[in-house]
Design a binder for these strands. Structure first.
Lengths: 208, 208
DNA sequence: TAGATTGTTAATCGATTAACAATC
DNA sequence: TAGATTGTTAATCGATTAACAATC
């Protein structure tokens, strides 16, 4: 079964909305409520659920707790996900210090850099020399790496970590990387996000 | 004319690829080459160009220099785009120090924070108290803001800057913001990007 | 000219939306 | 029961792809 990327992204959003509803004291939701919270239509919500065999009650909607369990299981959030960050520059360091991942069950296990001045072996979050990345990936069974290295180094580092067993990469370098068979690359391209925003703001200004 | 978001994102990618081809000494390209460089089909390239009235030569392909001029003009890259960053925490600070925007003609004009300890008025990139954001936006004619504030503050700050004249927001807070009429919000949700990656890596592992 | 490439039209594909029977 | 909501099917929409005439 091929699942659309958009569908999985919506699943994440449902999850976040459900937690918010739960803290507000809600115990069950209708597809309608969830649709509003996430900004889609109720039919999309029900369809997304049916893709994963999640069913509710014909009149009673969905139990939030059960729903969360199922979504969390689908997204792999029922177990800790360990990731590493390659590159301890501005972006890399910020990601390492960012608290937002923890509450999502994502733990940054270590950072890596080639600059000896950045190494800090005895930190709570150790920053290790890149030469050690292979042993670390193997011994810790890491599957996911965040790539925050300079553009010119990105492809080389990607090839390196993929050869060590990394299966998924979140790439912040603003260029298209060629990924080896069996490795998925998701790109976060801040320049393009801004360019896009600037374009649509300019268009809106013009047509005003 | 409604233009698909994806089309504009591809335009950015064409531009980046064209600069790379130019540094390699190329003077003209065929839709084929550009398609390869960006990872789409040649028909998409030609169609995207035709949407904007960009035409090439029936046999000779496209002049890179002319193409870049046209794309840059469409994307508003023929003039400096000034943006501000709200929130001088980990992510905000990293974005302020990030050099990648400059070479794209995007200048971070100032940062803003509510924490007096973060204020630094006399820096090359000044960090100012949030109370001054209104005057700054008005006097500098800023249209775009990057939002890197804590989740709970995000909606409030969004409303504030929109009321001051901001038309486009790049939001890093991992929640859906309700944007006032006439203001565009693009979201960069790192948690969701990672969750998505984790899902597809897990699926690939299972079906192996 | 023959071959290659553009620009555009028609066909296909996939995702979203609307509609509604089933049913609690 | 009557009303409301789910789950699913069919219709619609939009974007991508394939095909090809025009032409350099």
């Amino acid at each position: 079964m091929i699942t659309a990327k958009n569908c999985i992204i919506r699943l994440s959003r449902y999850k976040n909305a459900l937690y918010r509803l739960q803290t507000l004291g809600f115990v069950k939701v209708f597809s309608d409520n969830l649709a509003d919270a996430v900004g889609v239509t109720a039919a999309v919500v029900r369809k997304d659920f049916s893709v994963f065999g999640i069913s509710g009650n014909k009149k009673g909607g969905y139990q939030i707790e059960i729903l969360l369990e199922k979504i969390n299981s689908i997204l792999g959030k029922d177990r800790l996900q360990k990731v590493i960050v390659i590159g301890a520059g501005h972006i890399g360091s910020a990601l390492m210090r960012y608290r937002g991942f923890e509450k999502e069950g994502i733990k940054i296990a270590a950072g890596f850099d080639i600059d000896p001045a950045k190494i800090n072996r005895y930190n709570a979050l150790p920053i290790l020399p890149l030469e050690e990345v292979k042993d670390f990936i193997k011994s810790q069974g890491i599957k996911i790496a965040i790539l925050a290295v300079p553009d010119i180094a990105a492809q080389e580092v990607l090839d390196l970590v993929c050869s060590c067993g990394i299966k998924g990469i979140l790439n912040f370098a603003p260029l298209r990387l060629i990924s080896p068979e069996g490795c998925i690359v998701n790109n976060v391209n801040l320049e393009i996000e801004l360019e896009n925003l600037i374009y649509f703001v300019n268009v809106a200004e013009k047509t005003k």
